[in-house]
Write a protein that binds this DNA or RNA. Structure first.
Lengths: 123, 123
DNA sequence: CAATTAAGTTACAAAAATCAACCAGTATAC
DNA sequence: GTATACTGGTTGATTTTTGTAACTTAATTG
């Protein structure tokens, strides 16, 4: 899975080269986009409206939020529902499939919450 | 942790707004860079040399690999050792701290390996 | 009447990622 | 002997992503 190396004569070859994107890379391309993880995470307790997400993610622009939500919707991790209020509001909800990513996100949360002091610089 | 919302009159406010980067975002800024997860993952079984990593990650340019490794080294997830061979070779090894991220990466691997067919499009 | 809310979009600027070529010095295949 | 591959990167140009701030339309609040 991780790719094995071998030396044939003086030539080095990769035996199990990551068949293009390896599982880690493949997952990261879906969940690793900027703000993607946070968005999904903030939807874990139930539907949230666009501007509320925007408020909760303090730091992300509406543009990014809109783009990421569009992607998440396309990929079936999130659903978008227009509510007939005045003015109309839009609710985003995590799908069953989207929820399967929560376990991994929770593992990330645990890791991040236990970072040593000196790592907090990179926030 | 995920940020709570409340409506005061007609005004909506966020009670526990993500204190700037929430744990998910904080973690993603360390592990979520492109190729970062893969690099760490490929180091899980022992030290690997620069060009071998490059071969294993098929798709990432040397520039990206060099940059990501530099970052990982700065942040203490990886060590860099120059071997006095001819020509000199450089070995990268995951640190004890770096290894703490492997649990999370493994969770991602599991998730990615169980993606439904239609998700494979995004690879 | 002026301000605020809803959920975005637009145009532009800045930052990050990708690509291909190149460097040096050594060893190997032909 | 010469062309090639190997080592671990660096360089510069280009493309893609992100970020910023302003704007939209229609309705409500004070």
């Amino acid at each position: 899975m991780a790719g094995r190396l071998e030396t044939v004569g003086k030539r080095r070859i990769v035996l199990e080269a990551c068949t293009e994107p390896c599982p880690i890379e493949r997952g990261m391309r879906i969940l690793g986009g900027k703000w993607t993880g946070s968005l999904l995470w903030h939807l874990k307790d139930g539907p949230v409206r666009f501007n509320d997400l925007s408020r909760m993610l303090g730091g992300a622009s509406k543009k990014m939020i809109a783009e990421r939500l569009k992607q998440l919707e396309e990929r079936g991790l999130v659903t978008r529902t227009v509510l007939q209020t005045a003015p109309v509001s839009v609710e985003y909800e995590i799908t069953e499939f989207g929820a399967t990513a929560l376990k991994f996100l929770d593992e990330l949360r645990i890791w991040s919450e236990n970072l040593p002091q000196e790592q907090l610089v990179y926030s």
